[in-house]
Computed example of a mutant assay.
Amino acid sequence: MAARGEFEGRSVLVTAGSKGTGRATVARFLAAGAHVMTAARQAPGDLAGAEFVAADLTTAEGARALAQAAMKRLGGVDVLVHVLGGSGAPGGGFAALTDDHWRAELDLNLMPAVRLDRLLVPSMIARGSGVVIHVGSIQRRLPLPESTTAYAAAKAALTTYSKALSKEVGPKGVRVNIVSPGWIYTEASEALVERLAASGGTTPEAARQGILDALGGIPIGRPTRPEEVAELIAFLASDRAAAIHGAEYAIDGGTVPTV
């Protein structure tokens, strides 16, 4: 872990900071001295020191409210970390996905990043510095057709968008990278297990094993912890990674079987 004051004097905005990877990321930046703002539909319980904005970032209005709060209360953002994501679609493969399911997955996994970047990156460009990190997923390369086709497609779109953004804003002083986790053991992953168990008429243990089988196993023998993803995000946001730009970093315990 880097020095405690590594982000002293910097303003960091992290979406979805009330639990899981977002919560771990907020805590990591706070520990390094950053002024942190986060947003979620519900306030986190015990992240003392972080500013909080209640907002539904799946809507344009929610993104606008958060961006306005960041400009007013932080004076702008030095580091913008898009953690928000997940899947609420049912199991059952492609035929089970309605237009509403597809729209919901895109509104959760792609559009919040697009909207917040559009609102906040121009101020980074104006001062000639800033960092944007999008949290994607290895499922853009390794989709699980039983349950997360729309999620995987949305994350693939986010990755392509991130690369395009990096090419545009890199020459203007703003770094853009993407972190693509594999299976992170969070509340959301447990919810996915429960949904798959319910739709398949099986047990959570069987559904959990089904995910591992679909992934082809995890060579290190366990899912990734949220704190491990947060550590990678902090590194990429730091000056230690000043030459890393337009890159994607998988953190999946070796799940993706190819280079």
Rank of each mutant, 00 (worst) to 15 (best):
A43L: 09
L13I: 13
A34C: 08
G22P: 00
K19I: 03
H35S: 14
T38P: 12
V14T: 07
F7Y: 00
T38S: 14
G5N: 15
A40W: 01
G20Y: 09
A3G: 06
L13H: 13
R10A: 14
E8H: 11
E6K: 15
T38Y: 03
A16M: 01
H35N: 12
A31W: 01
M37G: 04
G20K: 15
G33C: 01
V36D: 04
G22S: 00
T15P: 11
G22T: 02
A32S: 14
R10L: 15
T15V: 09
R28Q: 12
G45M: 05
R41M: 13
G9D: 00
T25W: 00
M37I: 04
R41V: 11
S18G: 00
G20P: 05
R41P: 00
F29M: 15
A27S: 12
E8M: 12
P44F: 05
A40F: 00
T21R: 06
S18H: 01
G17P: 07
L13K: 14
L13Y: 09
V12F: 04
G17I: 15
A43H: 10
Q42A: 15
G17D: 10
A43K: 11
P44E: 09
R10V: 10
A40H: 02
R4Q: 13
A34T: 10
M37W: 02
S18I: 01
F29S: 13
R28P: 06
A34L: 09
Q42K: 14
V36H: 04
A40Y: 01
